Simulated assay, not measured.
Amino acid sequence: MAIRQVFFSFHFSNDVWRTGQIRNIGVVESQPIFSDNGWEKVRLKSDTSIKSWIDNEMKKRSCLVVLIGSETSSRKWVRYEIEQAWKQGKGIVGIYIHNLEDIEGKQSSKGANPFKNFCIDKTFNYIAQHDLPADSNEIRLSSICSTYESSYQTSKYVYKDIKDNIELLIEEAIQIRNRYPK
């Protein structure tokens, strides 16, 4: 498989440690499966700068991976990134990371599926931030974009499970998105 350019979307203050584990999967064993974006460098800038950065970074990526923690679905920038990824024709997949330990060795509670906050129109291909379809042409994004939750509870097994599956999840997300007009 080709190396994919991936944009990771996550709640920075809650999940940066968990996210770091996922982002380093390809680096740990010197097998670069994907490359990611540098959110840490821009997150403290103005809204205009952040939007511009997200838009520019998203153009370089083939897939958005939403790393779902306890509060991810409510985050403004996560929602913006989901919307932009769909508009730009990127694959979109969610991976639950609540059972990965943080820097203090703690797991968190499972968060809501962030794709339930969106609907897309099957005919005109727009995306809107609301959770109930407005008419028969709209469907929930959560019925299109998949989420992955490890069946394991122990952090080291959750990590290995994600590591074993992330490449396939990314490829499937890209294939799914390619079924819809851009």
Rank of each mutant, 00 (worst) to 15 (best):
K160T: 02
F7G: 09
A85N: 04
K156L: 14
E149L: 03
N117Y: 02
R140C: 09
S142N: 08
Q5Y: 13
I97D: 00
V16H: 09
R61D: 10
Y157N: 08
V93Y: 00
K45Q: 06
Y126S: 09
Y96P: 00
M58V: 15
I174Q: 03
N56D: 12
K90P: 06
C145N: 03
G111C: 04
R79E: 07
A85Y: 13
N14C: 12
K59A: 06
T147I: 05
Y159T: 14
A128N: 08
K122R: 11
I50L: 06
S74G: 07
L64A: 05
I103E: 11
I166Q: 02
N117W: 00
T19Y: 00
M58C: 01
I144N: 04
Y157F: 05
V65W: 12
G26C: 02
N137A: 02
D135S: 05
D102T: 00
S74F: 09
V28G: 15
Y180T: 12
Q107A: 06
P181F: 10
I25H: 09
I50H: 04
F12R: 02
R4G: 05
S108Q: 03
I176S: 03
I92Q: 06
Q107S: 10
W53S: 07
S109P: 13
A2T: 14
P32I: 15
K51L: 02
I144C: 04
F124A: 08
N178S: 08
S108C: 06
S13D: 04
S62D: 15
I92S: 13
D121C: 05
I50C: 01
N113C: 04
S74R: 12
I176R: 03
S62C: 10
S150M: 05
S73W: 04
S30L: 05
K76I: 11
D131E: 10
S150V: 00
P32H: 12
K41Q: 14
I95F: 00
Y157H: 05
I162H: 01
K156R: 13
L141C: 08
H98Q: 05
E57A: 09
G89F: 08
K110R: 10
S46T: 14
L132T: 07
S151T: 14
V27G: 15
K110S: 04
I68S: 12
H130D: 02
Q88A: 07
K59I: 01
L100F: 14
S143Y: 15
G105L: 09
C63D: 03
T154L: 07
N56V: 04
I54V: 13
V16F: 01
I82S: 02
K163P: 01
K156N: 11
K182Y: 00
D15P: 07
Q21R: 14
Q31D: 14
V6M: 04
R18D: 02
R177Q: 05
D121M: 06
K160N: 15
K76W: 12
N24R: 11
E138C: 09
R177M: 07
D102H: 02
